[in-house]
Design a protein around this nucleic acid. Structure first.
Lengths: 343, 343
DNA sequence: GAAAAAATTGCAACCGGTTGCAAAAGACTT
DNA sequence: AAGTCTTTTGCAACCGGTTGCAATTTTTTC
C-alpha cells in the first residue's frame, strides 16, 4: 500500500538513485531533478522508509529510552522532556519498561534487534550493570539520574548526591534543629547511600546535634508513610531529610494522621522538587534536582556520542538548590549565616 | 560489528535460508539443522535484525504509542501498563509526544517512516481527527481513553462519560446535597461535555436541587485550584463534581487555603481514582476509571487488528465505580436507597 | 527394497532503500 | 568549436533478512 522509491522513480521517469538522492541531504542532485522528483513524490504521497534506509546507512535514529521508574510522578516529567528533546533532534524514543527486570540480557537483546543508535537509561535506581551491559553490546549509552563518579564507565548525568546530603544537613542545622533524622529511600540504592554519607559527614561537624537514620523500602508514598508512622511511634526526631519528594509526602501524611503539625512538631525536607511539592496543600520544602538540565545535557551527550562513538565516558554533575516552602521552621536570622559559612 | 545471518551460515556451514528458518517459527527445519545453527549463533552472539526482516515480512512489531497527556500523573500508570503489555506480546512501543502538536500530518509521517504495525492513541483530550488521520494512513488504530460512540470510525476504548456524569450526580443527590456544581475540565474536551451532559440530565429529575456548572481550563491542579478560588469568592455550591482527580485536588487545596473544611463546608467528588486519591492526606472520594481494563482491552483490540486489519471499528465501554473516601458527607441511610434506585 | 509421499534444504529473487563508480551532461577555457 | 573540468545521473551491487520453488533427502508404504 505505501508507495516506494520505485513508484516515485517510475512516475518521475528517473532512476531510483535520483529519488533516493533528493531525499538524502548532502547528495548531488540538480535543482531541476529535485523539483521533478518532489512533484512526483507529493502526487503519490510518498515518504521514505526509515527502516529500509537504516539497513545501508547503519543508523535507525531510534534511541532506546530505558527506565524502571514508572511509579514516581517525577518521571512523567522526565519522559515528557526526553521524548520532546529527542523528537526535536529527529530521533525516536523506543520505550523500554524494566520495572521487574533484573537481568540486562533480555533488554540488550531487545534493543539490539531494533538496532537502536543509542540508549538513554533514565533511572535513579537501576544498578550500573545495566548501562554497562548496553555499552558492552556496542551501543552509545547515557545514564541520566545515575551516580556520577570520577572515572565513569558510561556517560552519567546527575546530581552530586553526597553534596545534596550535605546541603540538607546544612539546611537543618541552619534552622537550629538539634535532633535530626535521615529518612532514606531503599538502602541498597546508591543515591540513598550517597545522600546519607553526605548528610552524616556534614553533621559530624556538629557533635551536639543528635542524628539518626533509617530507610523506607521504596521511593514511594506508602513506604515513606509507613516508615514515618514507625518513627512517630517511638521518640521521633525534630526534623527529617526525606529520601525524595514522594516519600516525604508520605511522611507528611503520617504526621498528619498522628495529629501532629508541620513544621511545628516535625520538620521535613524532601528532594526533587516535583510539581506536587509546590501544590499549596503540600507546600514541601525541598532540594531541587534540575531535571531540565539533566535531560538536556543527556540528550546533548547522546548526540555527541552519535557523532563520535569513541568519546570517553564523562560525568556531568549538576548543582541542586534549596526550595524554601513551608515544611521546615524558618531560618533564625543571626546565627544562620555563620553556621552556613562554616559548612 | 553485530553479527549477521551470513556469519552464522558460514560458521555453521549451511545456507542463509537455513539460518533464517531456525529463527522464524513455523518454518521447516530439521532438529539437527536447528541445533547446528543455534550453536553457531550462540558462539557468535548473533541475534536477528528485526528491522531487516520487517522489510520482507511487512511487520515491524513496532507500535506507535501516541499521547499528549504528559502532565497528568495518571498517565504514568497508563504508560507503565501499556509498555508492559506490549512488551509481553513481543511488541515495542515507539513513544510519540504530541504535547504541542495540533496537526496530525507530521505525526502520521513520523509513524509511517517507521512502518509501525499499529498506533495506540492514549489520550482523553486529543481530538478524534488524530486517530482518523492514522487510520487513513492505513494503520490499525486504537484510541484508548477516547470517546466511545455507537458508530466509531476507529476502535475506541474508554468509559461512558455521560453515565459517569450521571453517577456523580446520583452520588451527590443520595447524600442530600441541594446545591451542587459541576467543575469541569476544559470546556472543549468531549469528555467534559459528556460528563456535564450526564450530570445535568440526572439532575433534571430533581428540580429542587440547584445546579450550576463552570470549567477549569485544563485537567490540572492549578486550573482546578484557580477555578475553585473563583467559585469560593462568590457564593459556592455545597458540593462539586470535579473534572478529574488532579483538578479536584487543586480544588481541595483552594478550599483549604480559604480555611474551609471538606466535607464539612464543601464536598468534592473526583474522577479517575489515581494513586494519589488514596493518599491519606488527600483521601478523595472519586469515580474509578478502570485503567487496567482499558489498557488490557486496547492491547487486545490491537493484537486482533494485527491479525485482521479489516476488522470493523468497535467501541468498548467500561463501567466506572464509586470509590468512597472522605470528601463527601456520608450517605443518609434511609432515603439513600430510594434515591439511588430512582436514578 | 523400490516407489510414493513428506520433509528438509539451497538457490535466487526480492523487500526498500543507499552508494561507489563510470558514463553523460553542463560549464568554462581558450 | 574543441578540449578540460565539474556536476549530475544511472547502473549495479549491497544492507540483513525472507520465501517460492525445485532439488534433495528422509520417511512411509506395500
Amino acid at each position: 500500500m505505501p508507495k516506494t522509491l520505485k513508484d516515485v522513480a517510475i512516475r518521475a521517469g528517473v532512476s531510483r538513485s535520483a529519488v533516493s538522492r533528493t531525499f538524502t541531504d548532502g547528495a548531488s542532485v540538480s535543482d531541476k531533478m529535485r523539483r521533478r522528483v518532489l512533484k512526483a513524490a507529493a502526487e503519490l504521497g510518498y515518504s521514505p522508509n526509515a527502516l529500509a534506509s537504516s539497513l545501508t546507512t547503519g543508523r535507525t535514529k531510534l534511541i532506546g529510552l530505558v527506565s524502571n521508574n514508572f511509579h514516581n510522578p517525577i518521571f512523567l516529567e522526565v519522559f515528557d522532556r526526553f521524548t520532546r528533546a529527542l523528537q526535536e533532534k529527529d530521533l525516536r524514543p523506543l520505550l523500554v519498561n524494566l520495572s521487574d527486570e533484573t537481568d540486562p540480557a533480555s533488554s540488550v537483546r531487545m534493543l539490539r534487534q531494533y538496532s537502536v543508535d543509542g540508549v538513554v537509561v533514565a533511572s535513579s535506581t537501576l544498578p550500573p550493570g545495566f548501562s554497562k551491559a548496553f555499552r558492552d553490546a556496542g551501543m552509545p549509552v547515557v545514564h541520566a539520574f545515575g551516580r556520577p563518579t570520577s572515572s565513569p564507565e558510561v556517560h552519567v548525568v546527575g546530581i552530586d548526591n553526597i553534596e545534596s546530603g550535605r546541603m540538607a544537613a546544612r539546611t537543618l542545622i541552619a534552622r537550629g534543629y538539634s535532633d535530626v533524622g535521615f529518612l532514606g529511600g531503599p538502602e541498597t540504592a546508591t543515591s540513598t547511600q550517597d545522600r546519607l554519607h553526605g548528610f552524616l559527614a556534614e553533621m559530624a561537624n556538629h557533635p551536639n546535634i543528635r542524628v539518626r537514620h533509617s530507610f523506607a523500602d521504596a521511593y514511594s508514598f506508602e513506604a515513606g508513610r509507613r516508615e514515618m508512622l514507625r518513627l512517630l511511634a517511638d521518640d521521633p526526631a525534630q526534623a527529617y531529610f526525606g529520601g525524595d519528594d514522594v516519600l516525604s509526602i508520605g511522611a507528611l501524611s503520617a504526621i498528619g494522621e498522628c495529629n501532629l503539625t508541620v513544621p511545628g512538631d516535625i520538620g521535613i525536607i524532601g528532594l526533587n522538587d516535583m510539581e506536587m511539592a509546590a501544590w499549596q496543600n503540600i507546600n514541601l520544602t525541598t532540594i531541587r534536582q534540575p531535571i531540565r538540565h539533566i535531560v538536556a545535557s543527556s540528550i546533548e551527550l547522546m548526540t555527541e556520542m552519535l557523532k563520535d562513538p569513541d568519546r570517553l565516558p564523562e560525568s556531568r554533575i549538576f548543582a541542586c538548590e534549596i526550595v524554601e516552602r513551608g515544611t521546615l521552621r524558618p531560618l533564625k536570622a543571626p546565627e544562620a549565616g555563620a553556621t552556613l559559612a562554616s559548612g
